[in-house]
């Protein structure tokens, strides 16, 4: 059985020693990292640290050095995210840190995607996401984006306070299959309906499927405003996006 001391990267060694307590997880992570190239351990360390610039640079270097893309994913990006998952579950880190790590993962995956494309593997679908006009609450949207990207979707994030025109412009520019709108406030929720109306006025309503979500949003409200679907949380958002583009979901 590999020992912790066999892991070359100091940061990863310390992270496992300090934060991973369950024996089965500890053994699995030690085994994984002990067998990983030092350059990939560095990628994992930068990801755990939420450092997207460093993940970007190190992933570029690893691929340029001839490391296989799937090995970069396995021993760098996914292995790093496994540590993040444990730290989050045990409350050593919280949602803002997890989202920073997800951004770091995206930075790395940005270099894998051209290889996927060259291999004939396209994203599951393209989704434009934004929090509606007047609303600055973005945690729910950001968690949905993290889940969608993790499921193989390409996501264009329009951020917060997104006007109907911004949504329309994004649809014309990126040609997504799905548009996702989020609102946290009862006062901004009607802007979802206004955005859908803008799609109808611009003759673009049939060009995309529209899904909505957010704490005050309900299935009934989604139906009333003419959305194609409602997701109550980030997990439901992924299932819904798959359903809207006609991908079968398991389970």
């Amino acid at each position: 059985m590999p020992e912790l001391t066999e892991i070359a990267n100091d940061f990863i060694r310390q992270e496992i020693d300090e934060f991973v307590e369950r024996p089965d997880e500890r053994e699995r992570l030690i085994g994984l990292f002990a067998g990983a190239k030092p350059a990939l351990q560095e990628i994992a360390a930068a990801l755990v640290d939420g450092d997207d610039d460093t993940v970007d640079r190190l992933t570029t270097n690893a691929l340029a050095a001839g490391t296989a893309a799937l090995e970069v994913m396995d021993d760098g990006l996914i292995a790093g995210m496994a540590i993040v998952g444990v730290k989050f579950r045990e409350n050593f880190i919280f949602v803002p840190e997890v989202l920073a790590c997800a951004r770091a993962m995206k930075a790395g995956m940005g270099h894998i995607e051209p290889i996927l494309s060259d291999s004939g593997i396209e994203p599951m679908g393209k989704v434009v996401m934004g929090t509606v006009k007047g609303d600055l609450h973005d945690i729910g949207k950001n968690l949905c984006i993290m889940m969608l990207r993790g499921s193989g979707f390409e996501v264009i994030d329009l951020g917060v306070d997104t006007s109907p025109d911004d949504f329309l412009d994004a649809v014309e520019e990126y040609k997504p299959s799905v548009v996702g709108m989020s609102a946290l406030l009862t006062t901004t929720m009607p802007n979802m309906g206004k955005t859908i109306d803008a799609f109808i006025d611009a003759d673009l309503r049939d060009a995309v499927k529209i899904m909505v979500g957010g704490a005050p949003v309900t299935q009934e409200f989604a139906d009333d405003m003419g959305a194609d679907g409602y997701g109550k949380d980030a997990m439901a958002c992924v299932s819904l996006a798959k359903e809207l583009i006609g991908v079968e979901t398991r389970g």
């Binding site: 992933t59 570029t60 691929l63 340029a64 001839g66 296989a68 893309a69 799937l70 994913m73 396995d74 996914i78 995210m81 496994a82 993040v84 998952g85 270099h111 051209p114 290889i115 996927l116 060259d118 291999s119 004939g120 593997i121 993290m146 889940m147 993790g150 499921s151 193989g152």
Partner: peptide
């Protein structure tokens, strides 16, 4: 990124997505 002509197998990639899905 400069990468040599590498081909990724769809099934192998899906296994990675499944693992990410479990973590997330």
């Amino acid at each position: 990124s400069r990468h040599v002509a590498e081909t990724i197998d769809q099934t192998a990639y899906q296994e990675r997505l499944d693992r990410i899905g479990e973590i997330f």
